[in-house]
């Protein structure tokens, strides 16, 4: 089998960026599945796209804006009804540590 297009270290790096705690077996499986998909995707390299503009929207539109008008807010209780944890009128999260 050829060397996979994505290394285990890259899988770990991407999982960290995406905030996904993957188990060791998951990481290994992910590596081989991503490798298969990336190998398939490699066919795009056959196309010369140097002079092709990228399309971000299929239906081109510009200058969609709203007027600067205030609209009613969501009552605090309705907003917090979905919060997993709250304290008073705040949403509560576990302590923040920097990486």
């Amino acid at each position: 089998m050829a060397e996979p297009k994505i290394t285990l270290a890259e899988v770990e790096h991407v999982a960290r960026l995406a905030r996904l705690d993957l188990s060791e077996p998951e990481k290994k499986r992910m590596r081989f599945q991503l490798d298969a998909i990336l190998t398939y995707i490699d066919k795009l390299r056959r196309l010369d796209t140097d002079d092709v503009e990228p399309t971000s929207h299929a239906i081109p539109m510009v200058n969609v804006m709203r007027e600067d008008e205030v609209r009613p807010c969501l009552p605090t209780e309705e907003m917090l009804a979905n919060a997993p944890e709250r304290e008073g009128d705040f949403v509560r999260v576990p302590r923040i540590i920097e990486e």
């Binding site: 609209r71 807010c73 969501l74 705040f90």
Partner: peptide
């Protein structure tokens, strides 16, 4: 469309969009 005024009670100036 939420207001930008300073000093409102916590989470009183939000809507589904800015949340």
């Amino acid at each position: 469309g939420c207001p930008t005024t300073f000093g409102g009670a916590p989470n009183s100036q939000t809507c589904p969009i800015c949340q």
